[in-house]
Nucleic acid binder design. Structure first.
Lengths: 403, 403
DNA sequence: GCTATTTGTTTGGCTATGGAACTAACTAAA
DNA sequence: TTTAGTTAGTTCCATAGCCAAACAAATAGC
């Protein structure tokens, strides 16, 4: 595919072909089932060209013909759909206490979703690589058994991942400067597919952009509330990682210089006043990070029972969150900000006040058209996004070889 | 040029040609003088292709052959340079008290830089359109007299400009929902070149990206300190405008809920604590907006004379500014944040403490590689960027017709 | 003057698009 | 049942524009 954004990148015919193959593939993904004639009419490509492109994609087993249309004037059309069966994309998410693996087919249909508990907190990625490699091998072998070719594997890490895929800092895992992609590739011994690493919020944003209800939005921000708070930024239809890959670090956006002390040492960081930790500090002051999910469940239970203290804490959190999101909305003007992670179960008590604060602070007329929404993708968003990362590279022209 | 970022956009041969023409043009812009052989070697295009492309560009009078190299083994090379003479791009910047017009040639050489005082503050863009049209006509006629073809005109406006070029709100000008591009096109009566409108900070960012000392940075943020504070965001080599075109509104980033009241009604906005108005409120409480420049000169004078009060105010402003820039750096991870507008003359007293605050707050290792710098483009940055906007569309493949 | 070297052009082959004509397969109506 | 009309998809050909290789041109150095 012809990439226009970074300097002199000459184009030739193979680029045209790749671009048009990707155009057809994406069109079918979004409009399946559809006919060759539909594709030609909607994309502007010539009928003959579409036929040639479709034949190519069928050869590569990316598309498949289904039945014909009936009971219409004129020759019935041969309908085309994405062929889900021959390929798989794998996404793995690692966190303090668990590893999640998902596999999806070309359509994005989830093929499997495995979660393994994982005793994190060790002093390096060594054990994690072993555990991830083991899990990945089992996923790959399952996919192979289903006669699927694995297109790629991406790992979502809660930390700073630089442009080369090196994990620079992952505070909750205790990692620094870990070449996870390299180590994992080695552990998998020539896996035959690319292994990538990226930040979890970035990948969750990608998942929303591809699979979420706001998949039409070319500009969206995904904000994840775990122990920390991170964001993934999609602008003009692509993930924006910044100069070194460290974009989206909003956890230490300073909201109130007189606020509570954050674990980073300063006061009033978004994370300290609007992270889920800000609530747990009151309701379960000595919970360990690995009990996070249970503690949140407890908060939800108390909120459901109209526990005054918890409701007040949640409202306070929501207001601070709304202020943070206003900053994001003013700076980036996305169509939507999507709350994920532990913000999801807490959303019923957060979103109202967060919205109120946010809309009141966005300068652009009509709030700049920016809505605040809650993720519907569940906890596995980052893992799903990791798989989506693989599909993205297919969609942008890196098709699997013919035959 | 083949744009890959927004949905199905099929490609054909003319796209390949346009892409490669743009590749050659950009290469020559950055490496002139150079030979056809250089271009082929560096871009990877075939020598024959380069010859054909260069011939085309010479036909369109975008390139010109200069002398030959001498005293080298082998056949001497015909050197190529951008042909500055036959074209011009016009940028106009409108502000409360003045209108600036600049014209540049293809190389970006400034052909003229006119500044007219303009009694703003009226209740609509009508007078401004008349004044701008008059100025534009004079610039155009000067360009025509120099036998230059005008490639386009862009207007920089201090306000929110939506994706269609409508000025939604321009507080200092008192405008709302003004179709400036349309009105100006009408006033110029079929000018024969495109007329565009964009936000001033966006365009200044573009100027930095093309002409500034950090022109290599694919990710940069330009922050302008006028009465308000605005930002222009370049990520992955292109201006990012957000969903509706309202990105970069950092003026009302809330830094301190207990801070001074902002003109927006809330407290502690970046604009209220780190806008130049925050100083003038103390040093010249009843200055009119149109005296801004004089008042800033006075502040600079007092700072040079070690006026304690002013130095303290500047340090305070710098610290707040640094905190705001830390938010930007954490969220976007640009290679550089460039301070412009009235921050430039005040920079000697601001940058030190702003940097200190910023670097201390950026989470990524090594500050994420993000530097804080001061614009060297002067007051006309937005007007220059407006002209650069025109050149950008040429560079991305919209070449003037042959002959 | 001869050779080596480098530049730029010419020629031919190849790929992939677009347009037009054509075949295919159906519905609807006479 | 035949015929006209409609839509789908293929075939054939012209064209654009890339690449590779051969070639012509112009120099330095011996």
């Amino acid at each position: 595919m012809i990439t226009s954004h970074n300097g002199p990148q000459p184009a030739d015919f193979t680029d045209v072909r790749a671009t048009n193959l990707a155009v057809v593939l994406r069109f079918v993904r979004e409009n399946a089932p559809c006919s060759r004639a539909d594709i030609a009419a909607s994309t502007g490509l010539n009928k003959a060209t579409v036929s040639s492109l479709v034949a190519d994609l069928i050869d590569r087993r990316l598309l498949r013909e289904t039945g014909l249309t009936e009971h219409r004037v004129g020759r019935p059309a041969t309908m085309l759909v994405l062929d889900g069966s021959p390929y798989a994309a794998i996404g793995i998410e690692i966190n303090v206490d668990y590893i999640t693996a998902v596999a999806v087919d070309l359509k994005g249909e989830e093929l499997l979703n495995w979660r393994r508990s994982f005793p994190g907190g060790t002093s390096g990625p060594g054990q994690a690589v072993v555990a991830m490699a083991a899990l990945a091998r089992r996923v790959v072998s399952r996919m192979t058994k289903e006669a699927r070719q694995v297109l790629g594997l991406t790992v979502a890490v809660p930390g700073l991942v630089d442009v080369d895929g090196i994990v620079r800092v992952a505070p909750n895992l205790g990692w620094r400067d870990a070449d996870l992609a390299g180590d994992l590739t080695k552990a998998l011994r020539d896996p035959g597919f690319p292994v990538l690493v990226d930040n979890d919020a970035n990948l969750a944003a990608l998942a929303e952009h591809r699979f979420g209800p706001h998949r039409n939005a070319a500009n969206l921000v995904y904000v994840t509330g775990e122990m920390g708070v991170g964001a993934g930024i999609v602008l003009d239809g692509r993930l924006r990682r910044g100069g070194q890959g460290y974009s989206g670090e909003i956890g230490h956006l300073e909201l109130d210089p007189a606020g509570p002390v954050c674990r980073c040492g300063r006061r009033g960081c978004l994370e300290a006043v609007a992270g889920v930790g800000a609530i747990l500090a009151h309701t379960a002051p000595d919970a360990s990070p690995s009990d996070l999910e249970l503690e949140i469940d407890e908060v939800v239970r108390r909120a459901r029972n109209d526990d005054r203290e918890v409701l007040a804490l949640l409202e306070n959190l929501g207001r601070h969150l709304g202020r943070g999101m206003a900053a994001v909305a003013n700076l980036l003007n996305p169509e939507v900000v999507i709350l994920g992670g532990y913000y999801v179960p807490l959303a019923p008590w957060l979103v109202g006040c967060a919205e109120e604060e946010m809309y009141g602070r966005v300068l652009a007329p009509g709030g700049g058209g920016c809505r605040l929404e809650v993720s519907t993708l569940g906890y596995g968003a980052a893992a799903l996004g990791a798989a989506a990362r693989v599909l993205d590279s297919v969609d942008s022209g890196r098709l699997p070889a013919q035959r």
